[in-house]
């Protein structure tokens, strides 16, 4: 691990590395929140339901985007592309610090790939869930639209059908 106070001439580089460490923490939080999204109740009525987890993910994405933008702005102002971070850092730091730098990058990439994996899973998960849910709603609409179904309290279900149809559209 490289200390950010190691040498004054390398302050900017150290800042980049410190920022990456912060991003790793946020990425791990995002991965965890993404995994959690698949097991929390989707009803939105419980304190830790899906809506809360989604909000958390949005906040984490917002933080990550802010960190990334700040990093790229700094690199761009020095005439580098955002993709050149590793090249820039290795160019500035002495060779003996390179293993530490590579370690930070390796952990960053691991965290990012883990997060990407969770997001890939969720993309498939929510896409299929949404699709089968809409199929079910459609089936329900067809079932209850027959006109003679009543619930246990004796009320007709036609109001529910109207609500369902209007919400689907």
């Amino acid at each position: 691990m490289i200390s950010v106070q190691e040498a004054p001439k390398e302050t900017a580089v150290m800042h980049f590395l410190a920022s990456l460490e912060d991003e790793i923490v946020v990425l791990n939080d995002l991965a965890q929140a993404a995994a959690e999204a698949r097991v929390v109740p989707p009803d939105g009525t419980t304190p830790n339901g899906l809506h809360r987890v989604l909000e958390r993910q949005a906040e984490l994405c917002f933080s990550l985007e802010g960190m990334r933008a700040k990093r790229e702005t700094l690199l761009n102002s020095n005439g580098h592309s955002g993709r050149d971070l590793l090249v820039v850092v290795l160019g500035v730091l002495p060779k003996e610090d390179h293993p530490g730098v590579v370690d930070v990058f390796r952990r960053y990439i691991d965290a990012a790939e883990l997060t990407q994996r969770e997001i890939d899973i969720n993309q498939e998960f929510f896409s299929v869930a949404l699709s089968s849910l809409e199929d079910t709603i459609q089936e329900v609409v067809c079932t209850v639209s027959s006109g003679d179904t009543y619930n246990s309290k004796g009320s007709n279900s036609s109001e529910s059908v109207a609500l369902c149809v209007s919400t689907v559209t």
């Binding site: 989707p42 989604l54 929510f126 869930a129 949404l130 849910l133 079910t136 609500l163 689907v168």
Partner: peptide, 14 residues
Amino acid sequence: LIRYQQAYAAAAQV
């Protein structure tokens, strides 16, 4: 069902 639908749609967008 509708609540699930809204939640899943929001999740897919996120």
